[in-house]
């Protein structure tokens, strides 16, 4: 009975820092203030469905999807190889992979700016080799690169964690029943690692679709993503009502995609780093 009391500070915390802000966002999104007039409205939401804003949403989802797919294609083999090295080296490899993550997110992204710039390191290297310099900075490619670089560990870690947990004797059983290495991978390792893949996809897709730092720094002004749009409404335009409405839409999109992903992850074996 008394245990219940321990929950009160938590409930208090949740109310102040989660429920209240969310409630405020909801209130802002459903109201308007025009000079002296104020009231309840749905216009903030309908406004979002104008083509310019919808395009921003589509571009955000598109870039996030591309980044997620690239992360998966890169991350799965990396996780697989690390899980296959012997225990002594395994932890070192994972550590090497994580060290950049301990640096500040902004710093890491700025570092890419100096690399990709017109007179950045990469182009200097290319010209010194007699090749023509590339225009990478401020393209969709640069944004995707930034996302992949920043979020790849979120793909590798959950897959790796699931892979090392797979019972070795299952692999042996498959071999015993006539499956060669490739078939064993397809029929045993891959299906058993799906929970990790699903966590990985969720954990890369969500920060990718909402980021505004990467798109602003590496995408310049012209590649506005939905995160930038929200930021602009709050900071530059000062239209908190519209900004809140976009935030709510964004939240719904994330909730829907998470519930779709969770449906795949029947056994709830996925690893969540959040």
């Amino acid at each position: 009975m008394k245990r219940k009391n321990y929950a009160y500070p938590y409930v208090f915390w949740m109310t102040i820092f989660v429920v209240l802000p969310l409630f405020l966002v909801l209130v802002y999104s459903l109201t308007f203030k025009n000079g002296l007039k104020a009231g309840i409205t749905l216009s903030n939401f309908t406004r979002f469905f104008e083509p310019i804003y919808l395009n921003v949403l589509l571009r955000s989802i598109n870039l996030a999807l591309i980044s997620t797919i690239i992360c998966l294609l890169l991350g799965y083999p990396i996780a697989y190889i690390i899980s296959r090295t012997n225990i002594k080296h395994r932890n070192t490899l994972i550590l090497l992979f994580l060290i950049p993550m301990w640096m500040n997110f902004l710093l890491r992204t700025y570092a890419w700016m100096t690399l990709l710039e017109k007179n950045g390191l990469i182009n200097k290297l290319l010209t010194s080799l007699g090749l023509s310099p590339l225009n990478i900075m401020y393209t969709n490619g640069a944004v995707v690169l930034g996302m992949v670089y920043n979020f790849l560990p979120f793909m590798v870690l959950p897959i790796y964690t699931v892979l090392i947990k797979i019972d070795k004797s299952l692999i042996e059983a498959a071999n015993d029943l006539g499956a060669n290495k490739f078939k064993t991978f397809l029929k045993v390792t891959l299906p058993l690692s799906l929970p990790g893949v699903i966590s990985g996809i969720t954990m890369v897709f969500m920060p990718s679709v909402t980021t505004f730092v990467i798109s602003r720094l590496l995408g310049g002004g012209q590649f506005t993503l939905i995160g930038n749009l929200i930021e602009q409404q709050f900071i530059n335009v000062g239209d908190w009502n519209f900004g809140s409405a976009i935030s709510i839409v964004m939240m719904l999109i994330i909730l829907i995609s998470m519930s779709i992903m969770n449906r795949f992850d029947k056994d709830k074996e996925g690893v969540n780093l959040w």
Binding site: D167, S169, L170, E172, A173, D176, L177, V188, P191, L192
Partner: peptide
């Protein structure tokens, strides 16, 4: 051409 019944069965959980 040999099959094994493993000590801990090693049945495929999926």
């Amino acid at each position: 051409k040999v099959n094994t019944v493993f000590q801990k069965y090693a049945l495929f959980p999926h």
